[in-house]
Design a protein around this nucleic acid. Structure first.
Length: 211
DNA sequence: CTCGTTACGGTTGAA
DNA sequence: CCTTCAACCGTAACG
């Protein structure tokens, strides 16, 4: 933390100008979804939140139409970095939707193999107790006494896999439900209205907001 | 000029 | 119920 005289070798932001003066952002807009901000291109965005679905859709649509990303960026007033990211993601995954935000990691306390075994045992015998599973893990040579998960760990793994209450169910390892369709009927009312292609400034102040 | 990359401040939500 | 904290967000800026 010394020697920061002339040349700083790292690629650090010298002075992030993002720290707006407290109590006075450059621009603010009220939206039904919270506090909106206006970017350098005049577009409205909500910091920390994904762009509305219809804009994402439009980005992809325009790109598919042969319009260059830089033009899309300016036209939709979305930063080129964001356009780049959305387009890139679309090409990779085929989805325009943002990634999953929030939540906790699966908290993998066991190796994938052990994890799989636990799932297998439980599927074959839903009534099996955690301590029985641990026992079987040892007996089958999946684990040894040094790395076998604790009973509570096994319990937690099962809870996460089988939705907490372990009732019998007809499994099905088909967990491919990530392609939901992005066609949203226009009954979806978001900040679409204020994010119209032309003007970003509509001040709608709802009296109160649940949530 | 374009555009890939990334620090940053921010929000979210399962554990 | 509340707190944690790693995942993702878009912007702004660098390269």
């Amino acid at each position: 933390m010394t020697a920061l005289a002339g040349g700083l070798p790292r690629m650090m932001r010298p002075a992030p100008h993002q720290n707006y003066p407290r109590g006075g952002y450059s621009l603010e807009v009220s939206t039904p979804l919270g506090q909106g901000r206006v970017n350098q291109l005049g577009g409205v965005f909500i910091n920390g939140r994904p762009l509305p679905n219809h804009i994402r859709h439009k980005i992809v649509e325009m790109a598919h139409h042969g319009i260059r990303p830089c033009v899309i960026s300016r036209q939709l007033r979305v930063s080129h970095g964001c356009v780049s990211k959305i387009l890139c993601r679309y090409q990779e995954t085929g989805s325009i939707r943002p990634g999953a935000i929030g939540g906790s990691k699966p908290k993998q306390t066991a190796t994938p193999e052990v994890d799989k075994k636990i799932e297998e045992y439980k599927t074959e015998n839903p009534g099996m107790f955690s301590w029985e599973i641990r026992d079987k893990l040892l007996k089958d040579g999946i684990c040894d006494r040094n790395n076998v998960p604790s009973v509570s760990a096994i319990s937690r793994i099962m809870r996460s896999k089988f939705g907490g209450v372990g009732d019998d169910e007809e499994d099905d390892d088909e967990v491919v439900k990530r392609e939901m369709e992005e066609n949203e009927p226009r009954t979806k009312h978001s900040i679409d209205g204020i994010l119209g292609d032309r003007c970003a400034f509509h001040y709608m102040k709802p009296p109160t907001w649940p949530e």
